[in-house]
């Protein structure tokens, strides 16, 4: 369980601690199975090349799920993610570090706006994102 986060302790410009994901091939297969997704680009390397990819691809929605996890864990148990938007811009590959990072853009009332991104191990932005989170006051 992530730690509590309170509105009182958050200011615009604050950096979120980064989260690093590195998907195994087995994880990609599990995600395909859990989402009943038979698209071969996620488990068949030879076929992925046919579609022009150097390796199998990390699912866009898996990267979206990771971004949701990143924001929700930062918000803490009493925090609530109100909205999340992400754009899939680049290809993510397994067995490579994918880093999620972000910063506080604004605080209005009890709602915090975050600017976020996922970058790969070359520094390319795979997925810019933004979120709104409601945080509790320190008791």
């Amino acid at each position: 369980m992530s730690e509590e986060r309170f509105l009182d302790d958050v200011s615009p410009g604050d950096e979120l601690p980064p989260l690093v994901k590195n998907a195994s091939r087995a994880q990609l297969f599990q995600f395909s199975a859990a989402t009943f997704n038979p698209h071969r680009i996620h488990y068949d390397r030879e076929y992925a090349k046919v579609e022009g990819h150097e390796d199998i691809l990390v699912h866009g929605p898996l990267q979206g799920a990771w971004m949701h996890q990143y924001v929700r864990d930062w918000a803490g148990p009493q925090g609530r993610v109100l909205s999340l938007g992400f754009q899939n811009r680049g290809r993510g590959f397994p067995e490579r570090d994918l880093t999620f990072r972000g910063r506080v853009h604004a605080v209005e009332g009890d709602v915090v706006t975050l600017e976020l991104e996922e970058v790969d191990d070359t520094g390319a932005v795979l997925m810019p994102a933004h979120a709104r989170v409601r945080l509790p006051q320190r008791p």
Binding site: M1, S2, K21, A23, Q27, Q30, F31, A33, A34, T35, L62, A65, W66, Q69, R72, D73
Partner: peptide, 11 residues
């Protein structure tokens, strides 16, 4: 299954 496959073990 979905949460585990995404590596998300939040209780």
């Amino acid at each position: 299954r979905f949460a585990y496959a995404a590596g998300d073990t939040n209780p």
